[in-house]
């Protein structure tokens, strides 16, 4: 399956509906920090420029605020297409342009596998440790701790259905041709 069809199948979006009005780029809160703006990502997907999209900062910087989807006059959800491109990049092991985001998402799901819920303090601490930002965040962590907003991790580990959902999702996904 070609790149465009794969993104469309993963995201449920028809990129041919995009007529490049660029309202998505104009409204994107992270647009000024992206190399490809959302409308350019949409156009690149349509042109099949796989490497340009998967190696863009845009697919890592999207926080999923859905402003683009709310404003698209064609009813397209650019955020869904961008999320699909990030999924492809992470599954293919494309070196992430913003490595902190890759570390965070992988660590987040690892934390979910412990007992289904995440423990926000350990997700924050591990992410900041791995991205070299732990020390500068310790004063804030201490302020939150003093106010009773840092909780111990929920125990016991392994007591939830998430591991089963995780295992079966990958089994079925591998068995199903996209």
């Amino acid at each position: 399956m070609d790149f465009r069809s794969e993104i469309e199948a993963l995201s449920g979006q028809n990129t041919n509906l995009c007529f490049q009005c660029s309202k998505c780029s104009a409204g994107c809160p992270l647009g000024d920090k992206m190399d490809l703006k959302p409308a350019q990502v949409m156009h690149s997907i349509r042109l099949g420029r796989e490497q340009a999209v998967l190696n863009s900062t845009a697919i890592w910087l999207c926080v999923g605020c859905e402003t683009c989807s709310a404003r698209c006059p064609q009813g397209v959800e650019p955020a869904a297409a961008i999320n699909a491109a990030r999924l492809m990049a992470m599954q293919q092991g494309v070196p992430p342009q913003i490595k902190e985001v890759d570390i965070y998402y992988r660590g987040f799901v690892d934390n979910m596998r412990l007992n289904g819920k995440i423990h926000d303090a350990s997700v924050a601490g591990i992410t900041q440790l791995l991205t070299g930002q732990l020390v500068e965040n310790l004063p804030l962590a201490w302020k939150l701790f003093k106010r009773g907003r840092v909780k111990p991790p929920p125990l016991p580990f392994g007591g939830s259905d998430f591991r089963k959902v995780y295992r079966k999702s990958f089994e079925i996904e591998e068995g199903s041709a996209l």
């Binding site: 990030r86 999924l87 998402y105 799901v109 979910m112 819920k117 959902v165 995780y166 990958f170």
Partner: peptide, 16 residues
Amino acid sequence: WICCGTLAAPSISRLL
């Protein structure tokens, strides 16, 4: 209940 998965779970696997 389990975590909603936020943007992290769909970045690992669509079905997940």
